[in-house]
């Protein structure tokens, strides 16, 4: 693991990153609770990839760039500007939900104000949409870079191939990220693809590609920073496979105990990216354990406030059902 200092990010940046990581974890836990109480119909979790998501988005100019996320990217979406209350509004189906105004299932993060593009549930379509968004930058002589993410299971779709092919042909300023957490719901990597690392596929498109450990903040950040720099210089797309964990079931509807062993789960818990990051913070004396505990208390309060505020928001009015079908 590289040190946090090696990222060459300032102390304030690293503390802000920690706050984002912790918010990602605590908000996710709250959404599970709300699901188990019956207030949120569905939740799909990003626990195990918070550090990777925070490192990834840290490499982008979130005030300039476009982001096409997938459903585990809650931490990334908040890093891009969406607030905890807005995420909560989405899960509770409130009109103020910036991703769909209560129309999509939870976890389909988006926000036009933050240049986070809406995505659907038939996975990997966003990879192709990203080529269009990136091509528009060339047509319009804009300098934004486009980030698109997906789970490793989705790389089996034809759209994955078509997107990489088009992006490479057109040298598009786009960064393709794969968050490989080992499972497509219950199907393990070995039943999903026959290559060792999905990053090997970059070669097939003459596209730089690498696999990084998502627990390693600095390595992940640097990989994406390099990709963004390539895109900015007109050198075209990059493929990055980030190795992450999935600490929970696939979703609130899934019982992973039936396909994962207790030993496997215990090992994952040992390797939980959030405490690992906290350990780095204190070892590198960026934050003391007491400061970390204080931040955690603050974050918990933030989550409580976001929950309360979002619960008070109105649901979309019934008469809006027919709005926005056509222009």
């Amino acid at each position: 693991m590289k040190t946090l200092a090696a990222s060459k990010l300032g102390k304030d940046d690293l503390i802000a990153t920690y706050r984002l990581i912790k918010l990602g974890r605590r908000l996710d836990e709250r959404l599970w609770q709300l699901n188990r109480i019956g207030k949120v119909a569905f939740h799909i979790s990003g626990q195990g990839s918070e550090v990777a998501q925070a490192a990834m988005i840290k490499a982008f100019n979130t005030k300039r760039d476009y982001f096409l996320p997938y459903y585990r990217d809650m931490t990334a979406a908040m890093g891009w500007g969406v607030t905890a209350e807005q995420i909560m509004a989405g899960s509770l189906g409130k009109a103020a939900d910036p991703s769909s105004h209560g129309r999509q299932m939870p976890n389909h993060y988006g926000s036009v104000a933050h240049r986070i593009v809406s995505f659907g549930s038939t996975v990997t379509t966003q990879y192709l949409l990203a080529t269009g968004v990136a091509y528009a930058a060339l047509l319009d002589h804009k300098d934004y870079v486009t980030l698109v993410t997906t789970g490793e299971g989705s790389t089996a779709q034809g759209d994955f191939h078509e997107a990489l092919n088009i992006a490479s042909i057109k040298k598009l300023p786009v960064v393709f990220a794969i968050e490989n957490n080992g499972y497509a719901i219950s199907t393990p990597n070995r039943e999903e693809f026959a290559v060792k690392q999905l990053a090997e596929r970059g070669k097939a498109y003459n596209m730089p590609a690498e696999a990084v450990d998502g627990h390693d903040f600095t390595a992940t950040y640097q990989a994406f920073a390099k990709a963004v720099s390539r895109a900015e210089k007109g050198k075209g797309p990059t493929l990055i496979e980030v190795m992450v964990d999935r600490l929970t079931g696939h979703s609130s509807d899934d019982n992973q105990n039936v396909y994962r062993s207790k030993e496997e789960m215990a090992a994952l818990k040992e390797n939980d990216n959030v405490p690992l990051f906290e350990k780095q913070l204190s070892e590198e004396k960026i934050l003391t354990p007491a400061e970390i505990a204080n931040i955690d208390a603050e974050i918990k309060e933030m989550v409580n406030q976001a929950t309360q505020a979002a619960e008070k928001l109105p649901a979309p009015a019934a008469e809006t059902l027919l709005d926005h079908v056509y222009a």
Partner: peptide
């Protein structure tokens, strides 16, 4: 475009998102 229709459609939709 390369010979892939989903790609043709997806590229177009992405451009549309950006106002093209």
């Amino acid at each position: 475009s390369p010979l892939g229709e989903s790609g043709i459609a997806g590229l177009a939709i992405g451009l549309g998102l950006m106002g093209h």
